[in-house]
Every structure is written in structure tokens, then in C-alpha cells.
Simulated scan of single mutants.
Amino acid sequence: MPADAPGHLVSSGSRPARIGVLLPWANMAVEAELPRLHLRNTIFHYARLIPSSRTTDVGASFWHGLRAAATDALDSMTHLPLDAVILACTSAAFTGGPPLPPRVVTAFDALLSTLAAVGAERVVLATPYPFQVTRAETLALQAAGRAVLAAASLDLADGYPQITPDQIEDLVNSIPTPAIRAADAVVLSCTGWHTLPVLDNLQSRWGKPVISSNLAMGMYAAGLSRGARR
């Protein structure tokens, strides 16, 4: 599943799917990576979420601020004929906070949808998050019926766009080999780091799907453009 090849996620619906993307205000990866998936029948419309704390490091004030800002951001898209709206933050889905508007799904929801689509029941997890956030995601994946065989984290609260491909590959390769071999997929959680450059190498090395949050959002959108409306 080469993530960066032309036509990787070609969609073939009769009309374009229009996806609203609610983007954390400091995120630089989503707008760079989604176009590189070459979704030919999908249009993304972006609105930025500014937490009231005006922080960028992950924590309760950041996640809860994003969720609280979602209603106004969605209101800015009122006149767009959207087929779906995605909150482009994975960790905001499992860290509590104000309820999201009914129409909004999260990058974590897209991740679960993609894991189901590829038949991945057992996964290994790699994140840039602080250890306790990675642990919270492990529990959230398990609660959703996915066995997490091992997890690794960079233990960072901020600075995700500056993480290099080598750092991501080293992080995944630090996971115990038996766990990766037993897993159905490798999960690279977080929309804020640039993961597309490493997907091919990791998939070739380990011989199984490597699903990042941004790839999962693209695959979710591709399903909508093929008529799987939600």
C-alpha cells in the first residue's frame, strides 16, 4: 500500500465528496499530506481551531480547547455541501472534554475505520505523544476491540512537525520484533507529524500495512467518495 505513489487513493464516485477538516491551529502536516494521497474525487475544506488557551502543546487545555472551538469552526462551513466533517486531531478523541457537534468525527474514528477495512485486529502503536497519552490511546484502541501488542512513544508534548523520518523509523523499529511480526498492522498515531515519507520503507521492512492518522483520514474520505456516505 504505497502511500506516496500517484493515484494511491483514487476515488471513483459520480460527484466529488466534500470533506470539512477542522484543523488544530499549529498543524502543518495535514494540509501537506492529504493532497499527496491523490484523491481525485475528493475536495477538502479547512477551518482552523484555536483553543482558548492558545497553547500548542498537547494537554487538557489544548484538547478541550479544540473540541470547544469545533462548533464555531463548523459554523464557518455552513454554506458548504459537506459529506463529512473530520476533527483532524487523533488524541482529542480519547482525552475527554466538551462534546463535539453531532456531525463531527475524529481522526481516531478514521483510524478505527481504516483498521477495520484492512482487517487489523492486532496492532502495534507508535506515537510522538507523552507516555501517558500513548497509554490512553492504547486503552482506547483496546476498548474499540483492537489488541495493542506493544507501544512506543517519543514522549513529546509539542514540536511534532519537526520530527524527522529517521526518528519515526527508529521509533517503530524500537518496538520488539516479535510484537511487530504478530501484529496485523502498525499504527502511526497523530496528524501533526509527517508520516507519508516513511510508510513505504516501514511496510517493505515489516511486510504489513502501516496506517498513519493522515492516511486513515484519506482512506475514510475515499470511502465517502465511493458512496459510503455517513
Rank of each mutant, 00 (worst) to 15 (best):
A143W: 12
F131W: 07
D166S: 13
A120D: 04
V30P: 10
W63T: 04
T55S: 01
R54L: 02
L215R: 06
L202N: 09
G7C: 05
D109N: 12
Y129W: 01
S213M: 08
G13T: 00
R103Y: 09
V10M: 15
P178T: 10
S189M: 08
H45K: 02
T114P: 00
A60R: 12
S204K: 14
Y46E: 06
Y129S: 03
A26K: 03
Q203D: 12
T90N: 15
V104H: 13
M219N: 02
G20M: 02
A68K: 03
V30H: 06
S11F: 00
P102E: 05
R230H: 14
K208F: 12
R54K: 03
L111A: 06
A157Y: 00
A17N: 13
E33R: 01
A222S: 12
G13Y: 10
V186D: 06
R226I: 06
T106M: 14
V118W: 13
A150L: 14
R15F: 11
S76R: 13
I163R: 15
S212W: 14
R122D: 00
S174K: 11
H8L: 09
S189I: 00
A92S: 15
D57M: 06
M1C: 02
A107Q: 09
K208D: 06
S213C: 00
S91G: 11
G218L: 02
A120P: 00
W193R: 05
N27P: 02
P99A: 14
N201D: 11
A157T: 05
D184Q: 04
N27S: 04
R67L: 01
L22M: 11
V118G: 10
R40L: 13
L80D: 01
P209E: 08
L87I: 13
F108V: 04
R229C: 13
D75Y: 05
N173A: 08
S204M: 03
W206Y: 15
H194F: 12
T55C: 06
D72S: 10
P128K: 03
D83K: 00
L100F: 15
G59W: 04
I86E: 03
